[in-house]
Design a protein around this nucleic acid. Structure first.
Ligand SMILES: [Mn+2]
Ligand SMILES: [Mn+2]
Ligand SMILES: [Mn+2]
Ligand SMILES: [Mn+2]
Lengths: 219, 219
DNA sequence: AAAATTATTTAGATTTGTCTAAATAATAAT
DNA sequence: ATTATTATTTAGACAAATCTAAATAATTTT
């Protein structure tokens, strides 16, 4: 099956939005891909034709098993390139998504596998997201919760769910990255902000919105 | 100026075919890009509109100075990725052109420059072709001639002009690569074939066609 | 200098991916 | 149970990149 770049982007977006077997809505997909619902409907028909998705009028979209396989390959390439950019070319984590968005469309299994090997077959990308292996298998991430719901006091950052440049740049500024260890000093119930302390740095307070997007596990 | 992948491929092909200020013909470009002359004419109008080429009906195509700048950037990216694939991912020289043909279209100066730096700012690619620097400047290659016209007896291979997989695979089989030192043992005037000797290997005879595509200089 | 050949361009279609505006379906509010 | 709102689809259009077939220009041969 030879997919265009546009088709690949749709398949990847559906994969991202599909939670379990809940169908993805036309509007959600349009918003994610920064396009119009009418365009999504058009593409849905094409992807159904190619048997990458299950789709019935007004019923939303789910990936077929073929579609899921395809999505995992694209995600694999995306995350491997992100690793390359960060580990080898010294890009920072907020710069790589956009570039990987293009690099992911170079469809060569040999290239992908060589790249993976060259990087030491990494299992997570610079944002803490798991990287599918050549067969589409991902390591099950160790149990993690968002920072706003963490019980333990001493935590380590394992991933970031919102990967917008804005949030990542904010976290950079505050010295928070993957692997950063932190301690919860206080929860303020007024706005659900959280006071945390990172080693060798003054305590700081972060908003609920930020805390929701930081994944952590007990250290 | 935001160019599509198709437009970039045209600009690069024109750059490749244009020898000095001789105009590139519609047919030559169609053949190079594996497309039809009618399509070339269509694209010529678009590229002229964008001021990347000079073009008048029936008069052929030449790059404008803007077009030349653009072409050099694409060539730079292409050749850097080829270096990456060979030097870092252990691809062999006949495999990389096709992949670089896609990677070259990721337009990020930062990525390009970081990649160059990571590779040690190479000045020639795996086929012996010079790599433009960030300003489009290339090292002037040291004087070289094709093997069929070489006078000296002891030579070193500096480049290959035909980069088809067929030729490169043939050269691999015969143990000939960039930097290979060889000695001319005989010219056979019957078919202009050449007998050569590479260190630690039996002598071999290569056809005129092969010899024409191997660039050498005296060792 | 015609005639024949080759090169190039035009005219008109097609495919892909997108859009706007209008129609219809589904869902929520009264 | 209507009505209003929201979500989705359809109809029709457009730009990009390509094609085939036909027309025209340029070049070469006789
Ligand atoms: Mn993408
Ligand atoms: Mn990522
Ligand atoms: Mn290309
Ligand atoms: Mn090359």
């Amino acid at each position: 099956m030879n997919l265009s770049i546009a088709e690949e982007n749709y398949v990847k977006a559906i994969y991202k939005l599909q939670d379990g077997d809940t169908a993805v809505t036309t509007n959600a997909l349009a918003y994610e891909l920064d396009t119009k619902p009418a365009s999504v409907t058009d593409m849905a028909k094409k992807l159904k034709e190619k048997q990458l998705i299950d789709y019935e009028k007004y019923q939303g979209i789910t990936l077929s098993s073929e579609g899921r396989k395809t999505a995992l390959q694209i995600v694999r390439r995306h995350r491997l390139w992100e690793c390359f950019l960060v580990d080898k070319l010294a890009f920072s984590w907020e710069e790589v998504h956009e570039l990987a968005e293009e690099l992911e469309h170079v469809r060569s299994e040999k290239l992908t596998n060589r790249l993976s090997e060259y990087l030491g077959n990494p299992t997570v990308d610079p944002h803490g997201d798991p990287i599918p292996d050549a067969h589409g298998k991902m390591v099950k991430p160790r149990p993690q919760t968002s920072l706003d719901q963490a019980n333990a006091k001493r935590l380590v950052v394992t991933a970031v769910t919102d990967q917008s440049t804005a949030l990542l740049a904010f976290l950079n500024a505050k010295g928070i990255g993957l692997g950063t260890q932190l301690e919860i000093l206080a929860h303020y119930e007024y706005d659900n902000s959280i006071e945390i302390k990172i080693k060798h740095a003054p305590a700081l307070t972060i908003s609920e919105q930020v805390a929701k997007n930081i994944m952590v596990r007990p250290v």
